Amino acid sequence: MNGEDYAGLGDWTPEDLGVPGEVRPVVSAPATVLSRPGGEVDPTAEETVRLAADLVATMRVSPGCVGLAAPQIGVGAQVFAVDVTGHPKAATVHGTFVLCNATVVEASRWKVGREGCMSVPDLTGDVKRAGRLVVEGALPGTGKVVRLVTDAFEARALQHEIDHCAGLLFLDRVAGAHAIYQRKVYL
């Protein structure tokens, strides 16, 4: 892709493109859409912009959600939203953004960390992910290809969402049953 380096995306909102986002239901495993690779999209297409808006809207009403991919709302497409703003494990924070057809360009500083997922609501697991990441993807609406350099929790969130777009859940990345845990419920 060879995207332009992007130090900060800033907060992106669906309203920036004149499209209101619709809150969509989140599908749970074992839904087939979660286990199949999503197709590439035209980031400038109206349906892609609408999908981006729906991802952001759905993410914003979901407590604790830091990322959401198209397969999680039932659409087999390579589009996801991320926002780790305010998360205690975040170091680099690019605000709210959506990427289309994203690929990992560089990955280093691998570390195991606990992950959860809205599509696997009852479990968490220990997953080894890169702590430093370079990703390229296209912005919805403009189609501009950007290169995002990030680390820590934002890097983990990006890898998690890119996996969703490839038909993988965090459960596909754990070392084994010993690394899967029942999610704690806090009242």
Rank of each mutant, 00 (worst) to 15 (best):
P71W: 02
G67I: 04
E161P: 05
A81I: 13
L148W: 12
G38F: 06
D11G: 05
R173P: 02
D11M: 07
R147M: 07
Y181L: 13
D54Y: 08
G76R: 13
L123S: 14
V105P: 05
G64M: 01
V49M: 05
Q159P: 09
E106S: 06
G113L: 06
K111C: 06
T32A: 15
V135M: 01
V134P: 00
A157N: 12
E15W: 05
D54V: 11
A102T: 01
F80W: 10
E4M: 12
L187T: 13
L123T: 10
R24M: 15
Y186E: 09
P63K: 04
Q182V: 15
V75D: 12
M118V: 13
V112P: 00
L133I: 00
A7M: 06
A52H: 13
G131E: 00
Y6R: 15
R147S: 10
D163L: 13
F153H: 13
V82K: 14
R173W: 01
A175W: 09
F97P: 01
R147Y: 07
V112K: 10
R147L: 03
D83H: 14
D163F: 11
A177G: 02
W12F: 15
G76L: 14
G143W: 09
V127W: 04
R183M: 09
H164Y: 09
T142S: 15
T96K: 03
V145D: 07
G74K: 11
V79D: 08
K184C: 12
D172I: 02
V61Q: 14
K144E: 12
L158T: 10
V33M: 04
G86C: 13
G137E: 01
Q182W: 12
G18P: 04
E15C: 07
C100S: 13
R147C: 09
P25W: 04
K89N: 15
A152W: 04
D16C: 00
H160T: 05
V49A: 10
G76S: 15
A29V: 01
V135G: 01
L51T: 08
E4L: 15
F97E: 02
L148E: 04
A31K: 10
P140Q: 01
A53I: 08
R60M: 05
G86N: 12
V79P: 03
G21R: 11
Q182C: 10
R173S: 09
R24C: 02
A91P: 01
V93L: 01
L68Y: 02
